[in-house]
């Protein structure tokens, strides 16, 4: 092999790889997510209305120049509520995904490194967590602690750990047996160093895939919990809460609030699922 062929920058190839794996639909999904994130971040620039304040005289206004998407039962601007609601919904899901991904990665690395009894023990713990449906665990946590976004976020994160941990454990175990890890172990490097320096970068693609898929699920579950009144509390703007608060208006012939928020949830969840599916190279609906 010549020196010239060695000079290819690895980063550029990897960028090309990513676009190739995402495909047109995946890229569209990434654009959708970028737009939603941007809209959430720039909410104060896009609208001057306060999402939590409205006047009763302005309730159920139709879309117009003042309120682009109209108002809800309390006269609050729906566009403002959607934009600020995106913040809550995205942030909540992001925290769930970060905590769950971090926890699952840690468990996978520990199980793979020590193997044998440690691995078997962690496997049992995960099985136990598997036995609880996610929402039940979250509802349980709320019953024990208090209602609120922080409580359900942590509870959901714990409920998500076994799904990701199961996949990550098996890929980490595969890496653990490879000669490069054994070579590093042979040098007397610590388990932490070998796991973080060698195994972690090699299971990163699976960690990211799991995170993208979990993001969609976390949005749905958080919305459901808000809908049930267990998660985000009014008057905070949140998509799940908007669907729930729009219930009564729906019956009175004002479906906008539930409809807009519902569409936002569906679009965002679908976008994250597509990305997760493309990254992981498997069918949507499968769980990481």
């Amino acid at each position: 092999m010549s020196a010239e062929t060695l000079a290819r920058p690895a980063a550029r190839r990897r960028g090309g790889d990513l676009a190739e794996r995402l495909g047109p639909l995946g890229i569209a999904a990434a654009v959708v997510i970028a737009l939603i994130t941007l809209a959430a971040l720039c909410a104060p620039l896009i609208t001057s209305h306060d999402p939590a304040v409205g006047s009763v005289i302005e309730r159920y206004q139709s879309p117009g120049a003042e309120h682009l998407l109209g108002t809800d039962q309390s006269g609050r601007d729906l566009l403002a509520r959607l934009l600020y609601g995106a913040r809550t919904s995205l942030l909540g899901a992001a925290v769930v995904v970060l905590l769950a991904g971090g926890g699952a990665t840690l468990l996978a690395l520990v199980a793979a490194w020590f193997g044998r009894h440690v691995d078997a023990f962690l496997g049992r713990v995960l099985d136990l967590l598997f036995a609880f449906p996610n929402l039940l665990l979250a509802i349980l946590a709320v019953a024990v602690f208090r209602t609120g976004l922080a409580q359900v976020t942590i509870a959901l994160a714990i409920a998500y750990v076994p799904y990701s941990a199961r996949v990550l454990r098996s890929v980490a175990l595969r890496e653990r047996r490879l000669a490069y890890v054994q070579a590093a172990e042979l040098q007397g490097l610590s388990g932490a160093v070998v796991s973080l320096r060698h195994i972690l970068p090699n299971i990163a693609p699976q960690i990211l895939t799991g995170a993208a898929i979990n993001f969609g699920y976390a949005m749905i579950d958080l919305a459901a919990l808000s809908f049930l009144g267990l998660g985000v509390q009014p008057p905070t703007a949140d998509w799940g809460l908007m669907v729930s608060q729009g219930k009564d208006s729906l019956l009175q012939g004002h479906p906008q609030q539930s409809m807009y928020a519902g569409v936002c949830i569906v679009v965002a969840v679908a976008a994250f699922s597509v990305i997760g599916e493309r990254l992981g190279g498997r069918k949507a609906g499968g769980r990481a």
Binding site: Q182, A183, E185, L186, P201
Partner: peptide, 27 residues
């Protein structure tokens, strides 16, 4: 122990059977 493995590694090293897996593909 780890320290012992490290000092042993200065005496003895190994080249592994599996040529593809013997190097970390990301380093």
């Amino acid at each position: 122990r780890r320290a012992e493995r490290r000092s042993r590694a200065r005496d003895i090293q190994m080249v592994f059977q599996d040529p593809n897996g013997s190097l970390n593909r990301r380093r």
